[in-house]
Amino acid sequence: MGMIRDLFLQGVQMFLVLAVAPLLLGFTRRAKAWLLRRKGPPLLQPYRDLLRLMRKEVVLAENASWLFRSAPYMIFAATWVAAALVPTFATGLQFSWTADLIVITALLGSARFFLALAGMDVGTSFGGIGSSREMMFASLAEPAMIMIVFTVALVAGTTQLSQVADFVFAHASLRVSLALALVALIIVALAENTRIPVDNPATHLELTMVHEAMVLEYSGRHLAVIELAAALKLSLYISLIASIFAPWGLAQGDAAPGAYVTAVVAYIGKLAVGGFLLVLFETSIAKMRVFRVPEFLGAAFMLGFLGTLLLFVSRTF
């Protein structure tokens, strides 16, 4: 019975992240429009877009290879698995021990690897420029992320996200190293989700694009899957920040069914708050030039490194 319940909860988490991700995207778009005093698209517009794209036929470039056709699914699967392993409404789920935070980071790296390759498959210059820049950003964002993982892991004594969340929940206190990690993680999250100031998700000016340039040749269901993966990634990062730095409201261990319902509500509330803060930040800042981004990400790297170094010097930081 326990096993079935655990599997059920894990399944709920898996499909919850999938179901909520486009809603978060719709919410951020709507909120951004509000802040700009526009009306904005309806909340459910991303679902409609996805559905429309999925029903359309795919127009494939003449020389696109099998890699181009399978990459969207690989990207989506890796991102989905990563997203399903981050605690959203409950900790200690059935498969939470299959992967720790380093694995989750690396899974996103796998997704990026395929995305960058897909951008280069057709052999257009826009795809190449997107891939090249994406890999440049990643070459700083990934080590920054590892440094953040180190900081968090040294504070909590574990790299398992569920354990980290339980630890922070039980021993919440203000710590310098965690503050540094939070700032660094926000910078990494902005860069990884191609948000302003690193990239503009709404842009259609080719030379400034990174993510959009890589997926320029995609259409139909392939594009839908990639867009869904991008939405998943955004909700993954917000869940990640929430589960490490604000683990309140998570259902722990063998909670009663009612507790899970409130936990899900709390999770959606956290996503809304995170999305709103993101939009607030985005509307108050301008996009950077592409070669300013390494400095921005380098700052995240150094903050994460500083946090780790402080913890090596003394565990009390």
Binding site: L51, M54, R55, K56, E57, V58, V59, L60, A61, E62, N63, V122, G123, T124, S125, F126, E206, L216, E217, G220, R221
Partner: peptide, 14 residues
């Protein structure tokens, strides 16, 4: 559930 239609065409490249 959705579509499996596909057509080949020249690359878009903006």
């Amino acid at each position: 559930l959705a579509s499996r239609a596909m057509r080949r065409g020249p690359a878009w490249d903006c």
